[in-house]
Structures are given as C-alpha cells and as structure tokens.
C-alpha cells in the first residue's frame, strides 16, 4: 500500500520560490504562467496496512506534526495501492 502526501504553501502565504520559478518561466518564453507554487511530494510505502481507519488517523496526525508545518503549509493525503 502506498500513501502519497502533497505539501503546498498555504494560499495566503508568500511563496518566494514559486515566484522565482514563475519569473524564470516567463524569461524562457512561457508568458502564460501566471502563478507557480512549489511544494513537496512524498511517497510512503506501507508494508502492512492493518487497520485502515487507524492508519489514516495516524498518517493525518503525522502530516500535521511532521510532514507539513501547519502554520505555513497545507497538505493532502492520498492512500492507495
């Protein structure tokens, strides 16, 4: 089983990296790029999923405590094969 976690800067938080990448895209001819936001993508292989609801609760807790910084980031958790 795999868990996929996407961590993105919160909408309201400045993303200097995204802005720098957007400017570089403009410079290289992609004027259509209006907003770029740079986040993180994590893939977690889970050996024995066990009790799925408990696992999901645990993963959400870890997303909040470890994988993202809730002060400045949002996360999305996907559990799948």
């Amino acid at each position: 089983m795999k868990a996929r976690v996407i961590v993105m800067p919160k909408q309201a938080v400045l993303d200097p990296q995204g802005n720098a990448v957007r400017d570089a895209l403009h410079h290289l001819g992609l004027d259509a790029a209006s907003v770029v936001r740079v986040g993180k993508f994590m893939e977690i292989d889970l050996a024995d999923a066990g009790d799925r609801p408990a696992l999901e609760t645990k993963l959400h807790a870890l997303c909040r405590d470890l994988l993202s910084n809730p002060v400045i980031e949002d996360y999305r958790l996907e559990l799948g094969e």
Binding site: P9, A12, V13, L14, D15, N19, V71
Partner: peptide, 9 residues
Amino acid sequence: DRPAVQVGD
C-alpha cells in the same frame, strides 16, 4: 493567530 506569520524572501 496564524495569519500573523510572515514569510521572508
């Protein structure tokens, strides 16, 4: 009071 966090560049 989370909006009170600024991000520096």
